[in-house]
Amino acid sequence: MSIEITVLFDVVPDRLADAADAFVDLCAATRQEEGALRFDAWRSEEHENVIVLVEAWADQAAIDLHMKEPYVADFLAKVEGAYVRPPYVHRLRPLAA
């Protein structure tokens, strides 16, 4: 079974354009990873400054490897200080589990 994750990022309004660009780059690079089944960033229609990351991974090893990629460190440096509060991570499981 894959690992499903969503992450909500409440972005400081004047950093939104730069953060969105950083997410686009991160998604493009991450989608090339073998264990990345899905990695998409979305804008919330209800909350103007919220970016939602939707991820699916083959396993925990793929996530661990992803977090060691140089472009992840680059992304984190680009978005440092860009959030109103820490990202809100949801690691999901089926209701029947």
Rank of each mutant, 00 (worst) to 15 (best):
D59I: 07
A19R: 01
E34N: 03
D18G: 11
H47K: 14
V79E: 03
D25P: 03
A96D: 13
R43F: 11
F23A: 14
A62C: 04
F9T: 02
R31E: 09
V52G: 04
R31M: 12
S2M: 10
L95Y: 03
F23R: 11
E34F: 04
K68Q: 15
A29H: 12
H66T: 06
D74F: 10
R93H: 09
E55K: 01
W42K: 08
P87T: 13
P13G: 13
V50Y: 02
W42C: 11
A28W: 07
A61F: 02
D25K: 14
D14M: 04
P94L: 02
W57M: 00
E80S: 15
V72Q: 06
M67L: 09
W42V: 10
A36P: 05
E4P: 00
A22E: 08
E46N: 13
F75M: 00
A29S: 15
Y83K: 10
A73L: 06
P94W: 01
L26I: 03
V50A: 02
Q60E: 13
V84A: 15
R15E: 06
V79Y: 07
A19E: 03
V11K: 02
R15M: 05
D74T: 14
A58N: 01
K78M: 07
Q60A: 11
L92P: 03
S44N: 05
A22Q: 07
A77W: 03
R91F: 00
I5C: 07
A22T: 09
H90Y: 13
H47A: 14
Q32S: 07
R43H: 11
M1W: 05
V89H: 03
D59W: 12
L26G: 01
H90R: 09
D10G: 00
D14Q: 12
V79M: 06
A20R: 11
V7F: 01
E69A: 05
A19S: 08
S2H: 08
W57A: 00
D59T: 10
A19C: 12
L37M: 10
I5V: 14
L76G: 00
H90I: 05
V12R: 03
P94F: 01
E80Q: 15
V89N: 02
A36F: 08
M67P: 00
D21I: 02
V11T: 03
E45F: 12
L53A: 11
R43V: 05
D10H: 04
E48Q: 10
A77Q: 14
V12M: 06
A29F: 09
E33I: 01
V52A: 10
A58E: 07
P70R: 05
V50E: 09
I5A: 03
L16E: 02
A62G: 04
I51H: 07
V79I: 15
V79L: 06
E69D: 01
W42H: 14
D40M: 00
E4L: 09
E45Y: 08
T6K: 03
D10I: 00
A28D: 14
I51V: 13
H66S: 05
A77V: 06
C27F: 08
W57K: 00
E80M: 13
V24H: 03
A29Q: 15
I3S: 05
L76I: 00
S44H: 09
K68N: 10
V50I: 06
R31V: 09
V50Q: 12
Q32R: 12
A28L: 14
F23Y: 15
A62M: 03
A58W: 01
V52I: 15
L65G: 05
D64H: 10
L53M: 15
P70G: 08
A61D: 12
L65H: 09
E55L: 02
